[in-house]
Design a binder for these strands. Structure first.
Length: 510
RNA sequence: CGGGGUGUAGCUCAGCCUGGUAGAGCAUUAGCUUUGGGAGCUAAGGGUCGCGAGUUCGAAUCCCGCCGCCCCGACCA
């Protein structure tokens, strides 16, 4: 008997929805395609924000903030960029409402001369500022970041994975030349890779996107890709070298040491609330989410087994002092976050609430534990032994001494489990496209686990690449990226038969 | 935006075919019992049946339109 009604094996998409709901992460809002992110979900985002912000600043970037609304004309400045985003833009056209025949409507008299778009990303309005801020080589590099919400009018939305409005961080930088801008692009990618792995326990493959998967307006796009439990890939972060495209479009020029005018080279990079979807699909199980301890808003939850009797007071005192001591410990370099759930609800209900939310350690303290000076707890990532719940008991002092270690071990176990899944499910033995068709073209049921393929290719471009895309699409596949770690020699391209120059990852994707 | 499904109590759903005063389980509230682990009994509260127009004496049910959600596709850093 699992805590969720649907299991991963029965129906993975349905299971995903169930986790979002049952772990109390988020719910749909009356606003189409937009989420209400609830405290447990937002708390996870705050942990992500806090740590990523620290790493971004540590690597030499400062935060700033640009407006939500961008003048419509700005978006038109870079051709590929418009092309990429025009179809999913929300537009603000009026500045006043008026009651017309008893119905509130945009006042026809109050139409804006120039509409605004709600930012889908901020390259254009930030580029405009950069053109004013960058005058001399002394102003470079300019390394900035903003935390913001953005909106893209998506046709099909899914909680956390693709919502119309989402929260993210967008870094924007300007540099004297390609070498410096590329170093920045790779720096951001490496921040994302290490952050995902260390902090979210999310093993990823960092690599370069093929030409047809690039950000609109980018010269080169890099991504980190994570493997979900259904074998699909999730792009969990991107970093773009924009070349001088935006600099040309927006006149970001500087005077070099010799006095000559040069175009700046820019970058942009971002991760979003989508990462939480990746955490769910990587670490969730049939009892809900298993929240990695580093991002769990509450790492140790204590459920007192209150029974409405006089000894309840002693029990509460015991739990309160336990929390106080646990909070003096530190894990992952931060104070431990322990919490007593003193809500007036049945203990068993509270226990299952925290199991579904995925609090890493859930302690159930009864009068006998208090009297005997013990702590009984369950370790969420290893909840069951067979069908039965596995609980552990330690002397209070031992539990306190070991708590931080247990959290750190849990983090490692979650990572190792996901890392093994990733490593064991990237097949490198496909040498022809027919092999790919055989593996991905036949399936017993929808959503069957197929994993990824790592194949050699000759990096075709233009029409030849388009044809590759079409052949892959027939199998619902896409090229995810060309991993950074490449061998020294290559076989033949599985698409063209020409000598290969690179290895790429192929997978179904979110 | 195309195909399919779906929308009835907070949640999961029955009722619709064959029109006749709105149902169940869980949850909630109250009381009693129970107390080393997802409790039991009793009672109570809770619904403009997604929205709008139509057929009809009468519509959750039939017809038409619209909207949301879910799945597949298209699209998508």
């Amino acid at each position: 008997m699992h805590a969720l009604k649907v299991t991963r094996a029965e129906d993975f998409p349905e299971w995903y929805q169930a986790v979002v709901r049952e772990a109390d992460l988020a719910e749909l809002s009356p606003t189409r395609g937009c989420m209400i992110i609830k405290p447990w979900g937002y708390g996870i985002w705050e942990r992500i924000q806090g740590e990523l912000d620290r790493r971004i600043k540590e690597s030499g970037h400062d935060n700033y903030y640009f407006p939500l609304l961008i003048p419509l004309g700005f978006i038109a400045k870079e051709a590929d960029h418009v092309e990429g985003f025009a179809k999913e833009m929300a537009v603000v056209t009026h500045h006043r409402l008026k009651k017309i025949d008893g119905v509130l409507k945009p006042d026809p008299e109050a139409e804006l001369a120039e509409p605004f778009i709600i930012r889908p990303t901020s390259e254009t309005i930030i580029g405009d500022a950069f053109s004013r801020w960058v005058k001399s080589y002394r102003d470079l590099p300019l390394k900035l970041n903003q935390w913001a919400n953005v909106m893209r009018w998506e046709m099909r939305t899914r909680m956390f994975l693709r919502t119309a409005e989402f929260l993210w961080q967008e870094g924007h930088t300007a540099h004297v030349d390609e070498a410096d801008a590329m170093a920045e692009t790779m720096l951001a990618l490496e921040i994302y890779r290490s952050f995902a792995e260390d902090f979210l326990a999310l093993p990823v493959v960092a690599g370069e996107k093929p030409e047809n998967e690039r950000f609109p307006g980018a010269e080169r796009t890099y991504s980190i890709e994570a493997m979900m439990q259904d074998g699909k890939a999730l792009q969990a972060g991107t970093s773009h070298y924009l070349g001088t495209h935006f600099a040309e479009a927006q006149n970001i020029r500087y005077q070099d040491k010799e006095g000559a005018m040069s175009l700046a080279h820019t970058t942009s990079w971002g991760v979003s609330t989508r990462m939480i979807g990746g955490v769910i699909m990587t670490h969730g199980d049939d009892d809900g989410l298993r929240t990695p301890p580093a991002i769990a808003p509450r790492q140790i939850v204590i459920v007192p087994m209150l029974r409405g009797k006089p000894e309840d007071e002693d029990l509460k005192a015991y739990c309160a002092s336990l929390v106080a001591e646990l909070n003096t410990q530190s894990a992952f370099g931060f104070p431990v976050r322990a919490y007593v759930d003193a809500k007036d609800a049945r203990p068993a209900d509270k226990r299952w609430d925290w199991v579904r939310r995925g609090a890493p350690l859930v302690c159930e303290i009864g009068p006998r534990d208090a009297a005997g000076g013990n702590v009984t707890f369950i370790k969420r990532n290893a909840l069951r032994e067979g069908e039965k719940i596995k609980s552990h008991t330690l002397a209070r002092a031992d539990f306190i001494a070991q708590a931080a270690g247990l959290l750190e071990i849990t983090q490692k176990e979650l990572f190792d489990e996901a890392k093994a899944r990733l490593d064991n499910n990237i097949r490198g033995d496909f040498t022809t496209f027919a092999d790919i068709e055989k593996h991905y073209g036949t399936e017993d049921k929808e959503g069957e686990f197929k994993g990824w393929a790592r194949v050699h290719w000759s990096r075709p471009t233009g029409a030849a690449l388009e044809e590759v895309g079409t052949r892959l699409k027939a199998l619902k596949l896409t090229i995810r990226n060309a991993p950074m770690a490449q061998p020294s020699s290559f076989g033949t391209c599985i698409f063209t038969g020409a000598p290969a120059v690179e290895e790429i990852l192929i997978a179904r994707a979110y």
